[in-house]
């Protein structure tokens, strides 16, 4: 009986060691993107916009053309790329500081234009690369390097919910929040990413996937505790689900 390959590295992911920490969610999401690109046969037509943050080197792992954006500017850079390469699959991959703090304007306006791009937003409630400072998505009371006594929402405001914020806009085509803290959720996350990429290929417009993800290193916990924290602490505040689905809206309108 011939051996059957049950699991392998996607072709769209380079055979290199990553710099991501144990228990980090970036590697999982990279792999999901890689699997989707393989399945959709899109590796050779993809241009990845990497952010400033832990994923700045994403183009070293995902084997596609890549461009590095200044901090927060990924949606603007992606806009420029997409407007010049309309038949390419343009992915803006961003973290929470990048997308919701320094790049809030770019985020909202690319969404508001209905820019035909796919934004993958990794929300791990902290700045990873710089060593664990408060992010716009840091939870109330969460201890970080810059909130050593816990995030005081009366002083620095509340964690921002990106999907809900963008869902107030008319133009976005698809908005979903997923999680990668366990296998069933990872499977769902992949479906969401696949959907968001397909929307772009079909010319439907702006798709936004928020991924609740782990940063055990900067949270100061082990990998399993990190995954549990996403489930127990983040998910109640950041509910999973589809916020916007114009396909579904259209279907129900037709019915």
């Amino acid at each position: 009986m011939a051996d059957k390959i049950l699991y392998t590295r996607p072709d769209s992911i380079r055979d290199v060691k990553s710099h991501y920490c144990p228990g980090c969610g970036h590697g999982i999401v990279h792999k999901l993107i890689g699997e989707c690109l393989d399945e959709m046969n899109c590796r050779e037509k993809t241009i990845l916009v990497a952010p400033v943050g832990c994923a700045v080197l994403a183009y070293n792992y995902i084997d596609v053309d890549g461009i590095e954006a200044p901090h927060g500017r990924a949606p603007a850079v992606a806009t420029g790329v997409k407007r010049a390469q309309k038949d390419k699959l343009v992915i803006s991959y961003q973290g929470d500081g990048d997308l919701l703090a320094i790049g809030t304007a770019e985020t909202i306006h690319a969404a508001n234009r209905g820019e035909n791009i796919t934004v993958i937003f990794i929300n791990n409630a902290i700045y990873g690369m710089t060593g664990g400072q408060m992010a716009p998505t840091t939870m109330e009371g969460q201890v970080t390097k810059t909130t050593p006594y816990g995030r005081d929402v009366h002083d620095v405001g509340y964690p921002i919910r990106a999907c809900e914020l963008l869902n107030t806009l008319v133009a976005p085509y698809y908005i979903e929040r997923v999680s990668v803290h366990d296998v069933p959720h990872i499977v769902k996350a992949k479906k969401a990413i696949r959907r968001a990429l397909q929307n772009q290929i079909d010319g439907k417009g702006y798709s936004f996937i928020e991924v609740l993800s782990m940063c055990p290193t900067n949270w100061g916990v082990d990998a399993q505790t990190g995954a549990d924290w996403v489930r127990d602490v983040m998910q109640p505040y950041y509910p999973l689900g589809v916020f916007r689905d114009k396909d579904a809206e259209e279907a129900s309108r037709v019915q």
């Binding site: 916009v49 603007a76 850079v77 992606a78 806009t79 420029g80 997409k82 407007r83 010049a84 390469q85």
Partner: peptide
């Protein structure tokens, strides 16, 4: 394209020019 900011405008140039 009228950009949302000066910063975004120049980054759009960067993105388009990179292609």
């Amino acid at each position: 394209l009228q950009a949302e900011s000066e910063i975004a405008a120049c980054n759009m140039v960067y993105g388009a020019a990179a292609t």
